[in-house]
Write a protein that binds this DNA or RNA. Structure first.
Lengths: 130, 130
DNA sequence: CGAGCTTACGATCATCGTAATGATG
DNA sequence: CATCATTACGATGATCGTAAGCTCG
């Protein structure tokens, strides 16, 4: 699976118009059309309803669009985390506990976590459930 | 950002040995070495400690490895969702409620959800908190 | 030395743009 | 017929593999 195809797909799915999507991507219609076909082939899933003149998303296309946005967000997060880590940032995990939570298990979890990820700073809060 | 570089990076980060990683990927050492440099350049982040003979992950590299796995999982999920949707699958959301949860807000939430995503099947459960 | 990473270089494959073709509202 | 999507084809650019070079344990 190629990231390029996903970027192209998001543009087409949002514009529902190859020419506009192509312009937005800085390429021509032709490679976009081929790319969408290629994507559908690779997935084995029809993403668009084509009537040669109209471009609409199938249900699978709508679902896939949402998933593609998730992917983009995850990739974006990955790049930012790496850059932050390079600048000495040490990740930290905030855990909110409810009153009713069983405490002993938390203790052993934290102990194991410190073994596996000693650099990780962990802060524990106690909050009312609301 | 290219998926190819991410796949390569995960292999190298897990093997910590270019030759083995290359073998696992079905390519040669040479393009892998270039790919890792390319990745570091694109990120502007040093991912490996190179001593010409030893390959280790920097802290940023360790963080990025974790993020890459998240990306892979998200992509995998995207492909599966699209295929499932193509076969008529309609997503459903399961919501578990605790006794103390405020009920009125849930009702309005569900109503709005039905407007926005009528195809979505929603099941609500009530569970004890444990 | 030699195991393992890197650089050099030529070849192959993928992707692009231009241009011609087809279809439908 | 005009607009939009598709197909054909030649060109450019990216990625690969082979092979040589370099470095440190």
């Amino acid at each position: 699976m190629d990231f390029r195809l996903l970027r192209y797909f998001v543009a087409v799915a949002e514009e529902l118009h190859l020419a506009r999507a192509a312009q937005r991507l800085g390429i021509e219609q032709s490679p976009l059309s081929r790319a969408m076909r290629e994507l559908e082939n690779q997935l084995g899933v029809q993403l668009f309803d084509r009537s040669t003149r109209l471009t609409r998303l199938t249900w699978a296309g709508q679902v896939f669009l949402g998933e593609c946005r998730r992917v983009e967000a995850t990739v974006d997060q990955a790049l930012r985390s790496a850059k932050a880590a390079a600048q000495g940032y040490q990740g930290h995990l905030r855990i909110a506990l409810c009153d009713s939570m069983v405490q002993p298990r938390i203790a052993t979890l934290l102990a194991r976590s410190r073994e596996d990820e000693p650099e990780l700073e962990i802060r524990v809060f106690e909050l009312p459930f609301a």
